[in-house]
Design a protein around this nucleic acid. Structure first.
Lengths: 140, 140
DNA sequence: TTCATTTTTAGAATTATTCTATTTTTATTT
DNA sequence: AAATAAAAATAGAATAATTCTAAAAATGAA
């Protein structure tokens, strides 16, 4: 039995995070929804099944997960932060028109040469333009 | 006489932006301060010399400049947007400890292969870690 | 059980940004 | 130059994402 719950628990414990119900729920949500959700979306979707869930808990949990390097925060959109549990190397694309955020897989992430003494422990690349669908419509 | 004011005016007009006093002031500020300031910082610094300046005008101007591709908006920090008038290829580094944001020059910006039909008109790479000074202190 | 620690919670507080409605400035026409 | 139209700037209110606060609940240890 290697269900999703076990994978979620393992991943939390691996990073020294006690797997409470709420943390498991948020983590499972991120692992099963590759949609780069906002904190709000996560809360709204979990709420019906966890009516005592608080938005503060979602924020607390997301902050903890990001701090511990379990998920990444994506700031490709000024308005609100988005979250991504996929740690495989990939970058994000945002469509100016429809707002969609797409994953784009890459071999490895690009980290340019840094000034002496500077160490990098994470990097993100954001590309912005028009997605295939919106490009179609623009031609007409 | 190729003063800064002329360069500022030219750059605005080149992008079809009417060079009002306020727009010139914001643009000149960005061209002479490579500090990746927030809208707030720009307002606060300009205000003493332009006591009728409104924060809304600073935001309006920055939004216009970004829309027209005259400056870039940097979202390396969730809290507030930062702005950069330097359009030479470079990426940004943020220190986890002291919060400093540094420019790191690169030959050309990395844009990985996109899915068919997707077009990219701008891209940003953000690296996060520890700057040289903070690394020093951490060793001790 | 009792006590201490951690986690969750609701709602208030904060804060960056946008919106609204008005005023000022600039440009155009007579 | 006066009148009109259009664009830009302004003050302050409104919005909304996130954090904070203080209390309650859950967990773990003695």
């Amino acid at each position: 039995m290697n269900g999703i719950k076990n994978m979620v628990r393992e991943r939390l414990e691996l990073h020294g995070i006690k797997p409470s119900m709420q943390r498991m729920a948020v983590m499972e949500y991120l692992m099963t929804h590759r949609t780069h959700p906002t904190a709000e979306m996560i809360f709204t979707d979990l709420y019906p099944d966890m009516p005592t869930l608080s938005k503060a808990t979602v924020y607390n949990t997301l902050n903890l997960l990001v701090e511990r390097g379990v998920v990444r925060m994506i700031t490709i959109e000024e308005k609100n932060a988005r979250f991504d549990a996929c740690m495989d190397p990939h970058i994000h694309f945002r469509c100016r028109e429809c707002g969609a955020i797409l994953d784009v897989n890459v071999e490895a992430h690009w980290v340019p040469a840094m000034p002496a003494g500077v160490t990098v422990d994470m990097s993100e690349t954001y590309c912005i333009g028009y997605c295939a669908e919106c490009n179609q419509k623009r031609v007409n």
